[in-house]
Design a protein around this nucleic acid. Sequence first.
DNA 1: CCTATGATTTGAATCGATCCAAGCTTCATT
DNA 2: AATGAAGCTTGGATCGATTCAAATCATAGG
Lengths: 359, 359
Amino acid sequence: MASLLEGQARPIRLADIARAAGVSHGTASNVFSRPEIVRAEVRERVKAVAEQMGYAGPDPKGRLLRAGKVNAIGVATTEPLSYFFDDPFARVMMAGISEACDATGAGIALVSAANQEKLAWNIQSALVDGFILFCIEGGSRLVDLTRERRLPFVALELGFQDETVSAIGVDNVAGARLAARHLAELGHRRFAVLSLAFADNRTGFATPEIVRGALYTGTRDRLAGYFEELARFGVDTTKIPVYETENEEKSTRAALEAIFAKDETPTAILAMSDRMALIAIDWLTARGLKVPQDVSIVGFDGVPDGALCTPALTTIAQPITEIGRRAARMILDHDGAVRRETMGVELIVRASTGLAPKV
Amino acid sequence: MASLLEGQARPIRLADIARAAGVSHGTASNVFSRPEIVRAEVRERVKAVAEQMGYAGPDPKGRLLRAGKVNAIGVATTEPLSYFFDDPFARVMMAGISEACDATGAGIALVSAANQEKLAWNIQSALVDGFILFCIEGGSRLVDLTRERRLPFVALELGFQDETVSAIGVDNVAGARLAARHLAELGHRRFAVLSLAFADNRTGFATPEIVRGALYTGTRDRLAGYFEELARFGVDTTKIPVYETENEEKSTRAALEAIFAKDETPTAILAMSDRMALIAIDWLTARGLKVPQDVSIVGFDGVPDGALCTPALTTIAQPITEIGRRAARMILDHDGAVRRETMGVELIVRASTGLAPKV
DNA sequence: CCTATGATTTGAATCGATCCAAGCTTCATT
DNA sequence: AATGAAGCTTGGATCGATTCAAATCATAGG
């Protein structure tokens, strides 16, 4: 009871215990952090005093300052925190990160914020040894903010021009080519592209200028991959509508509306994310168009949901879990070097693609 | 370049900047934390020096010790970290927690560990202002461990006997009754219960002694609810097989094997979690039994997956997101009081339950 | 009884910031 | 020119621990 009340007033600290037990700070500290070097008798006495005074054990806040290492890695994004638990891609990635962290006993701190200002503050004040950045919308800003902390960090999912930042990505060109070839070989000749953004906060049909000026080279590379391969099949890629969206429901639906409002509608859709592809399947089905009989769709990412929906999604699978694991390892084993890794991707053919409809 | 090299050697701290700029450390601190009270000229000079020396800004480690508050809440479980991203129940809960944290700008630290020893250490050293505990297996141990930290904490999902710990739970008895009544009204008279554990690390058929000695009163209450209601319909509840499982695939399948190995097989299964119910649907279907024509199933929890599977799961829905929000608020607005809240639940009838088969 | 030798313990220094009472400037007012 | 108020700066204290060189204590051997 007494200890409870005192605890309310002001927390007991190690120095209080030391004084009460009649030993020095140093010895009291040793009792908790290296008990084996303290004489048994003293150790028990200090422990007893601590117990009796209701001492909660060495406060990590104090230890931290001295030790320097937090033993946790921060995972940051510009999306709200719930993104980590909602988004299928993020979840698989987090599973990989978790695995690496569990293996070394490191913790995970989720960093995000409702607005930009708070995000900056949260990144500046996050208690972590390094960051993994989910670069979605506003990825470049996130990188800038994080760079200020001068802690190790890895950018994910971003064909980032800047060679000075560590990053793990996938071979976007190769992946896109696989997707395009698959559709072309099924006889498709009329395409549309559901694209990710080429720069922050853009949506709408993309012009060649926009593509050339792309900030996100990942998006640019995927488009380049699509186009290169389709050109080999004699498709006039200048006629293919490319619509930038924000990788969420509303703007993806707007993209589909716009694409299918044109005179010539596509028989095949190349989506730069599974999320968009899944939304597209839904939209098309609701509109009475059959997938894949009327329209084929290929996604990009390889999230588990793609295998479960109807029809199951043909997609370009990234080794998402492995990327997560490696990103975490990069932070945990950080050696000061800038590392840029490119992982391979794989075409997974499922039910959302089929032969092009006979004209 | 120079700044990079020096940064490697030893990080620059505020005192270095102060010295280089010829001001006191107090003023240097103010430049960053309350720039408005520093004369513009001095402020700019200090900022310039900081920039030039490659100062990363006030280190949160130092600030933390002084400020006392971390501005993050810890979410702990005995499961591996990936549990937070895999488990449907946990994910919805985390979404609620995230919402409350986003609203106040607080961060989330995930705490877990591969083994018990590491878990203890991770809880002791987590940099958080309070904990939310996911009390699954080993929940009581988790509570004991956390209590040592003397930080505010809330236990979730645990009909915990101990009235001295804050907790948010649901009305297990009422929920179980709803489930049982629903099945009884459909004409079912032969039941089996897929139960959660009554104490740590138990699986197998539960005897009345085990039930009476239940550590987890949540499990006990659900069973009591089932039995009370079924008794009102004239069912002999002593004959109902109750199999404790660990709420995961393997032991749930073992439970089903055991239950269906008996002479009299059930026409209705009361599952204490959606997870188990979903596994049961899968198991039954694979065995050639039709749900709900041959066997009806009611789950408990109300996770989103239940609505998407085939057949869609009838279940007792908890207000999971709201529980998460409240738990987070309890920590963020902590006032020293012990709070115990019980939330209502709701029967959601979907396709996994139907009329009892004619004998 | 004295002296190594090893085992414990001490106390000051340190980690990196923030806070605050007190002192110093500056400038307007009388 | 003296007075007072307001605005800035200063430097010491503090947050809560860990670390390490030096001091102290035991114990055994000579």
